[in-house]
Nucleic acid binder design. Structure first.
Lengths: 109, 109
DNA sequence: GTAAACAAGTTTGTATCGCAAACCATATTG
DNA sequence: CAATATGGTTTGCGATACAAACTTGTTTAC
């Protein structure tokens, strides 16, 4: 319960790194889409090595973040899912890479 | 319930990135200790901007991973905690930075 | 024609994580 | 002695990442 007399730690100073992209599986997805511009689910599955389940849920997250577009259609009576980065997604990806490079280079070695 | 007839996804191919270091708070801690060689708790608190609570738990994790040594002593009748990377921790940190740089540079831009 | 297998994903279960808040032990100060 | 400070550790909990299970429809075997 609240004890007004006690000192608190200050809240954590928010870290600049974009966690959405920092997650390696999602970085892989975004990096792939960044270069190919658009790809389907199965291509991404092979390229990233992710399982269908995890790929699916990461894609949904990237979509909620506004970083990617999911387009579902039927091809040969089978579901077919096409993915591509949004403009915002491309920008975020570039920003992430820039920050990471700065960070990694801000140390001798 | 096991259903032997059903196809399973293959297990996720393990990702090369060291999650222990990938976590930004821990990267910060390790980067600091990498350059100063040894520091106390309060110095790290100021340098990293982490709260005592989170700093404490990240330090414990780094210790369990074998990446850092925690030396507790009393100075002026007060607890004093000295931290430093182990040889293994330094190597892991260097390896992480190398892999990250490769990854970030393996894309045009 | 119907049972079994396949295809392309989605949903669920769960252990772990990262963070903030609460707590603790000792020391000092009013 | 009660309150406050110091230097941390522990607890509570919502969010996460992954694997396993499920779903919806299609094709193949018999």
């Amino acid at each position: 319960m609240a004890d007004p007399g006690r000192r608190r730690d200050r809240p954590e100073t928010s870290h600049p790194v974009d966690r959405m992209i920092h997650e390696p599986a999602r970085y892989l997805i975004m990096a792939t889409l960044y270069v190919v511009d658009s790809a389907d689910f199965l291509f991404l599955e092979r390229q990233t090595g992710l399982t269908k389940g995890n790929l699916s849920s990461h894609l949904s997250k990237l979509e909620s973040a506004g970083y990617l577009r999911i387009k579902k259609e039927f091809v040969d009576k089978k579901p077919h899912t096409m993915l591509s980065l949004t403009k915002e997604g491309r920008k975020a990806f570039e920003a992430y890479r820039g920050e990471m490079k700065r960070m990694l280079n801000s140390l001798p070695g």
